[in-house]
Design a protein around this nucleic acid. Structure first.
Lengths: 262, 262
DNA sequence: GACCTGAATTGGTTCAACCAGTTTAAATTG
DNA sequence: CAATTTAAACTGGTTGAACCAATTCAGGTC
């Protein structure tokens, strides 16, 4: 028990691990094929009857997969006309972020999306801070403080997984302190990505040497109610670590020639 | 043809207008019931066989609806155990924003979410600007400039629908100029909301008197490559209009006693 | 060539079983 | 009587075949 403790409630659920349901498995495969460009944008999927036969499932089951694809805006479905691959790069939504980073086609594009996502993450956390400064309750402050201290302690251990989970906990505390559904909903898509990174490529979890001090500074600014200062600190820090990550990723990109991975 | 011109490609698609497919209709109804709290968080939905009978559809069709709910993280489904309403306020993602604002339970909560969404929108557009300043191509600049001028012209017409669509076009131009899938994906969920507002409650489209000048200032800062200045202008402007909107919404809230609308 | 017409194609829905985890309650056992 | 075992019942997951309803497209008609 307590094997893979979830950072926060609302953890595991959908497509977390390998899909057990046939419909899920087919959904993921089709999703990956679309991301890979194997099913090009604008092209039509084979008719449901054919596709079902290909995957050796019944049409009803296949339809559930298609329904999920449609919900993610990866395809558009019209009676009599077929299922068409949508221009997801343009029409997609943030829910595609994590799956795209896992199944996306070219390494170059994945790296680009990841770097953009990091910048966006910084913006989201800055938003969270500015809202949280206005709305944080005493218990939120306690939780934030605790998460920060835990991180400072864990920092000396140099374990990327522990630190990653700790930072996730810290982010969650901050997001909860904002008491904003909108902030929580935006953040969840990013947290999904970080979950995946911690689990599958912890080496990507880059931390700056000044991490411990930084935690203190942010907490202090936050407690003073100086949201602008806290946001600024956050921005600066991320600019530094993201620069390191950029370097790291370019190295990985250079060493990994082809498209294949997994 | 050209009847209800879409602002941008990637327009109509899913649940735009009243669902024609039975499965979609049921999905929307269940979604609304969950938002309304009629199906409380943590409670179990009736068994599929019963629910299908209630809606007078077949189980397979109902399952497609459930699948969509699951994809939106509104329910969790486990074999042998049933379908449980998820704590969407915590586990949901940005895709819920538009539907929640349309079907959400208490007017007070809807207003709160809308105001938070506006602040988030500002943050997202600031992000878009800061990225766009780095990546905008000449054609992006042309498009932005054109959209801005069109808005200045339309401003004198005082037609909220035209102005709303124009501002949507302007935002789209900016988002495209960022050349970032992440930015586009975040923004799409917000654009969905604005689409709905323009169509259904155009009176909410508040514009400041200084709108025309503001457009000029932002464009100028942008063209100078001063992303920080442009973002700042955007933030200031939104703070002003959002304050007006806050007032307007509180009035509407006061005049509309019950939960019912539509 | 423009216009109907109807078959073929494709998704949408229905029905009726059966399979597979979970839960519950009865039966068994100590 | 309490703990355990067992089997029924419930719940979602999947199947297969058939029919309905838009859309497309090929032929036929004018």
């Amino acid at each position: 028990m307590a094997a893979a403790a979830n950072t926060e409630p609302g953890g595991p659920s959908a497509q977390g691990v390998a899909a057990t349901k046939r419909a899920d498995a087919v959904f993921e495969d089709l999703q990956a094929r679309i991301f890979r460009g194997e099913l090009p944008i604008g092209s039509r999927l084979p008719p449901e009857r054919e596709l079902a036969a290909e995957y050796d499932i019944t049409r009803n089951t296949l339809r559930e997969s298609i329904r999920a694809l449609e919900q993610e805006r990866l395809v558009t479905v019209r009676q009599g006309q077929g299922v068409t691959v949508a221009d997801f790069r343009r029409t997609g939504r943030l829910t595609l972020l994590a799956p795209f980073l896992e199944h996306g086609a070219s390494p170059a594009e994945r790296v680009q999306v990841l770097l953009d996502a990091l910048q966006a993450r910084s913006a989201v956390l800055q938003l969270a801070i500015s809202v949280a400064v206005e709305r944080a309750q005493p218990e939120d402050m306690v939780r934030l403080e605790a998460a920060g201290q835990a991180q400072k302690a864990a920092f000396r251990a140099h374990d990327p997984v522990v630190l990653g989970r700790g930072e996730l906990a810290w982010m969650n505390a901050l997001i909860d302190a904002a008491h904003s559904m909108t902030v929580r909903w935006i953040a969840n898509s990013f947290l999904e990505v970080f979950e995946a990174i911690i689990t599958r490529m912890p080496s990507l979890w880059v931390l700056d040497a000044g991490y411990a001090d930084w935690i203190d500074d942010v907490l202090e600014a936050f407690q003073k109610g100086d949201g602008a200062r806290a946001a600024e600190l956050l921005d600066e820090y991320f600019k530094r670590t993201d620069a390191s990550l950029r370097l790291l990723l370019s190295q990985i990109l250079a060493s990994e020639p082809g498209d294949t991975d997994e």
